[in-house]
Each structure stands twice: as C-alpha cells, then as structure tokens.
C-alpha cells in the first residue's frame, strides 16, 4: 500500500468516526445527562443520611440498606411482586393469543390490528385510569348491568380492591406484551413449522415444540415490560386501590414526597432498577441458549 493510500484510509476512517459521533452523539448525551447521571446520584444518596427537609446530609451510612429488609417493607415488596406477577401472567395469557392471531391476518388487517393495539396510548394514562373508576364503582355501568340482569342482588365492591389494581395495570400494559410477542412470532420461520408437520407433529405439538420455545425470548421481553412498570406504578394502586394496596411505586413516591427520606427512597428505587437489570440479563441468557449461539463447541 502506498503512503498516499494509507493516509486516504486514515482520513476516511476519521470521517466514519466523526459521522458516528454526529449520529449517535445527541442520543448518547441525552441518556448520559438524564439517565446515567441521575442513576449515579441515586446510588450516591443511598450511602448518606436523610436531611430534615429532604435532600441528604453527607454523613456516610449503610443503615438505609438495612431498613429495606424490615418486615413492613418486605411485605410491600411481597405484595408488589404478587400483584405485578398476577398482572404479568394474565397479560401473557391474553396477549400471546392476541399476538398469534394478528400474525395470521392478511398484511392489511395486520396493520389495522396493530394500530388498534397501540390506540389506547393516544389517550392520557390518568384519564384512562379514571375511566376504570367510573366503570367499577358501585353505581357504575358494570354493577348496574349485573343488577339489571339479576345476577347480583347488591352492588359489588369492585373498586378499591387489589383486583381493581390488577385490572388497571393489565389495561395499562397489555399492549407492551402484544407488541414484542407479535414481533417474535412473526420472526419464526414458517418452514420450521412445516418441517415439524412434515415430521409427524400435529398443530398443537408443532406449537409447543417449535413456536413456543422460539418465541420465549419475546415472551420474556413482554413479561419484563409488564412486570417492572407494574411494580413501579403508583397511580393505579392509588386511584383504583384507594390507597389500601401499597406497592413499591407508592413506597418510593412516599419516601421522596411525604417522608422526605431521599436516601431510603433511593435504596428502594435502586432495588427496582437492579431487578430490571437482572431480568434483562436472564432474558438475554435464555435467548442465547435457544438460538444455540453460545453453547460450548463440540
């Protein structure tokens, strides 16, 4: 290679680098300033003492972590996990068949169906949650209909129950299951399904042996998308749970805004972030295993 060529290569390499900076730079800067730095700040707060009116006093302590394991907080964690877990399971049971059905539509109707799935996002989340209060309250259309049909004799106390919280969370996050599951079913090579049929597997068997395992990474993404924000959500437990159901999201908010205990609020927030990271790591490991990319060479 002549020196001229070398320098030309060097110049184009630098150009590629600067082009990358231009394209990725603004996004990276945004994430650094508004995501990474606040996270580091939260991490820092956890090691110091609470200030009387919020903020922190810079006295190093590990007590904040110890407090998180007190029974009263463990119970909140337990309740949150249970409610978020039930919501996730229900979302998968409803979302998977929906996503599967959408992949079997003609391309035109597929687009229509996907738009319908995301349509609720175009309305304000608070308003949608308030709508459930109207639907579920003792004078609401649901109770009225059941009364009129003679199925029940007196209005049911549907609102302000853990069940109402689950319904609200499910309603909020169901599209977040449908979309990744849809994408993963769509990606399954149809020839694999035909191969299974050809080898003697019926429809159900083909689904269990081929479609389901190959879409598991998408299912896990969907599950994370429901589980984590469900745990962190404080609007739904408050509006539909009537403040009787305390979840991690409420706890964090209360620590910052009511108790003014930023360090302890930070500890709990960090737990939720840690849970998220752990779940994503698990998802990635399972996805690698299923595709056979990172199995020990034989």
């Amino acid at each position: 290679m002549t020196p001229a060529q070398t320098s030309e290569r060097g110049a184009s390499g630098r150009r590629a680098l600067s082009a990358r900076t231009v394209f990725a730079g603004p996004g990276l800067l945004y994430i650094t300033v508004f995501m990474t730095l606040p996270l580091l700040l939260i991490l820092t707060y956890t090691f110091f003492t609470r200030g009387r009116f919020g903020g922190v006093v810079w006295d190093f302590t590990l007590d904040n972590y110890g407090r998180a394991f007190e029974p009263v907080y463990l119970k909140v964690f337990g309740t949150s996990m249970l409610i978020a877990g039930i919501t996730t399971v229900l979302a998968l049971l409803l979302g998977y068949p929906t996503a599967y059905a959408i992949t079997r539509l003609s391309p035109k109707w597929r687009t229509v169906a996907l738009v319908l799935v995301v349509l609720p996002f175009w309305t304000n989340f608070l308003i949608r949650t308030y709508a459930w209060i109207i639907l579920l309250n003792s004078e609401g259309p649901l109770n009225r209909a059941l009364l009129d049909l003679g199925i029940i004799g007196a209005p049911l106390g549907l609102l302000y129950t853990p069940g109402a919280v689950i319904v609200g969370l499910l309603y909020a996050y169901l599209p977040l299951v449908v979309l990744p599951v849809y994408a993963s079913i769509e990606r399954v090579d149809r020839q694999l399904l035909e191969a299974a049929r050809n080898l003697g597997a019926g429809r159900a068997r083909t689904f269990l042996d081929v479609t389901l395992p190959l879409t598991l990474p998408g299912v896990m993404i969907g599950a994370i998308f429901v589980f984590v924000p469900s745990m962190g959500n404080f609007v739904v437990p408050e509006l539909l749970g009537g403040g009787k159901t305390v979840m991690v999201g409420n706890l964090i908010r209360d620590q910052f805004l009511e108790a003014r205990d930023w360090p302890f609020g930070s500890v709990i927030a960090l737990f939720v972030v840690g849970l998220l990271v752990a779940l994503f790591a698990l998802q990635a490991a399972i996805a690698r295993r299923i595709n056979g990319k990172k199995v020990a060479r034989v």
Partner: peptide
C-alpha cells in the same frame, strides 16, 4: 391426509433445522 399423516418426507431448501435443538 394432513401433512403430518403423509408417508412422505420433505427436505426443505432452507433445511429448516430447529435452531433450539441439537
């Protein structure tokens, strides 16, 4: 007969090997 009941086997152009099985 449905595909899974036919005494015929097909080798696919893309081979269609199950990626999640050895």
């Amino acid at each position: 007969l449905p595909p899974d009941k036919r005494p015929v086997n097909l080798m696919f152009q893309s081979y269609a090997l199950f990626p999640h099985m050895n």
